Simulated scan of single mutants.
Amino acid sequence: MSEIYTFIDLETTGLDYEAEQIIEIAAVRTDLEREYGRLQMYVELCGGRVLPAFISELTGIAPEDLSHGIHPFDAVATLDYFAGPHSVIVAHNAPFDFSFLAINELSAESFVCTRALAKLVEPTESASLASVCARHGIDLTGHHRAMNDVLATIEVFRKLAPIAEARGIEYRNVVVNSPERPLTFVPYNATVVEVSAHST
């Protein structure tokens, strides 16, 4: 039976998972040959939070989009149900996404961080999603909208995972820590690999 992956992306009100919250979740469940489903949810603002103007400008998400969104805890529970118990969770910057999921009591037993994968395969290049996509001719129209980033992450994984496997590079449940982007959260069950400063 083919392995099932659930590719995810979150948009949030800011970077600090202890002070900010999720505003959008997108996911695609696939075995890389067949797509089994897509999920996209807006998440309501809680605790008196407002949507910062720069986040609205970056993502294109407006406050009215969130006015009928799902409560963060319920949104994360829905994502967990969608992914299922045996899915490998894939995110481009897993420590970031997983920090917000952990606050809402969700962790992944098996995961791939495609940012770590990119850093391990191309250590002297930028591992940002935009840079990886540009190098490999992957479409990233509408960057910083969750579903657009999910679809791009699928293609990044398609390109880079076979290279890592051919070189014997271990990338599953691996995150990278580097001087230019130190880890602020280490996901459950993760191995941390230290890399030298080259590119962000």
Rank of each mutant, 00 (worst) to 15 (best):
residue 1 M to W: 11
residue 2 S to Q: 14
residue 5 Y to V: 09
residue 6 T to H: 02
residue 7 F to M: 06
residue 11 E to G: 08
residue 12 T to G: 09
residue 12 T to A: 13
residue 16 D to H: 15
residue 17 Y to E: 05
residue 18 E to D: 14
residue 18 E to W: 13
residue 19 A to N: 14
residue 22 I to R: 07
residue 24 E to Q: 15
residue 25 I to E: 01
residue 26 A to M: 04
residue 27 A to S: 05
residue 28 V to Y: 04
residue 30 T to E: 01
residue 33 E to G: 10
residue 38 R to G: 10
residue 38 R to V: 15
residue 38 R to H: 15
residue 39 L to I: 05
residue 39 L to D: 12
residue 40 Q to M: 07
residue 41 M to T: 09
residue 43 V to C: 07
residue 46 C to F: 07
residue 48 G to I: 08
residue 48 G to V: 10
residue 48 G to W: 01
residue 52 P to T: 09
residue 52 P to C: 10
residue 53 A to Y: 03
residue 56 S to M: 03
residue 58 L to D: 00
residue 58 L to S: 01
residue 59 T to A: 04
residue 60 G to A: 02
residue 60 G to Y: 04
residue 63 P to A: 11
residue 63 P to T: 10
residue 64 E to T: 14
residue 65 D to L: 12
residue 68 H to M: 13
residue 69 G to R: 11
residue 70 I to F: 03
residue 70 I to S: 04
residue 71 H to Y: 07
residue 74 D to Y: 03
residue 76 V to T: 06
residue 76 V to R: 03
residue 76 V to I: 10
residue 76 V to K: 03
residue 77 A to N: 07
residue 77 A to P: 01
residue 78 T to G: 06
residue 80 D to R: 14
residue 81 Y to M: 08
residue 84 G to P: 14
residue 86 H to R: 15
residue 87 S to H: 09
residue 90 V to A: 08
residue 90 V to S: 09
residue 92 H to L: 03
residue 94 A to D: 00
residue 95 P to L: 08
residue 96 F to W: 01
residue 97 D to G: 10
residue 97 D to K: 01
residue 99 S to G: 11
residue 100 F to L: 06
residue 101 L to M: 14
residue 101 L to T: 02
residue 102 A to G: 13
residue 103 I to W: 06
residue 104 N to D: 12
residue 105 E to A: 14
residue 105 E to I: 06
residue 107 S to F: 11
residue 111 F to D: 02
residue 111 F to Q: 04
residue 111 F to S: 03
residue 113 C to E: 11
residue 115 R to I: 01
residue 117 L to N: 07
residue 118 A to V: 05
residue 119 K to V: 03
residue 122 E to Y: 08
residue 122 E to W: 00
residue 122 E to K: 08
residue 123 P to L: 01
residue 124 T to R: 13
residue 126 S to Y: 03
residue 127 A to M: 07
residue 129 L to V: 04
residue 129 L to Y: 06
residue 130 A to P: 00
residue 130 A to E: 12
residue 131 S to E: 12
residue 131 S to G: 08
residue 132 V to S: 06
residue 132 V to K: 02
residue 133 C to H: 08
residue 134 A to I: 02
residue 135 R to H: 11
residue 135 R to Y: 09
residue 136 H to V: 07
residue 136 H to M: 08
residue 137 G to K: 07
residue 137 G to M: 07
residue 138 I to S: 05
residue 139 D to W: 00
residue 139 D to T: 12
residue 143 H to M: 12
residue 144 H to L: 06
residue 145 R to S: 04
residue 146 A to E: 00
residue 148 N to R: 11
residue 149 D to P: 07
residue 149 D to R: 01
residue 153 T to E: 00
residue 153 T to D: 06
residue 154 I to G: 04
residue 157 F to N: 02
residue 158 R to Q: 08
residue 158 R to H: 01
residue 158 R to K: 15
residue 162 P to M: 03
residue 164 A to Y: 00
residue 169 I to F: 00
residue 169 I to G: 01
residue 169 I to A: 04
residue 170 E to Q: 12
residue 170 E to C: 05
residue 171 Y to S: 02
residue 174 V to S: 01
residue 174 V to H: 03
residue 176 V to I: 15
residue 177 N to G: 13
residue 177 N to E: 15
residue 178 S to K: 13
residue 183 L to G: 08
residue 186 V to Y: 02
residue 186 V to H: 03
residue 189 N to K: 07
residue 190 A to Y: 02
residue 191 T to M: 05
residue 191 T to G: 01
residue 192 V to S: 11
residue 193 V to H: 05
residue 193 V to K: 11
residue 194 E to G: 11
residue 196 S to R: 13
residue 198 H to D: 05
residue 199 S to G: 06
residue 199 S to A: 15
residue 199 S to K: 13
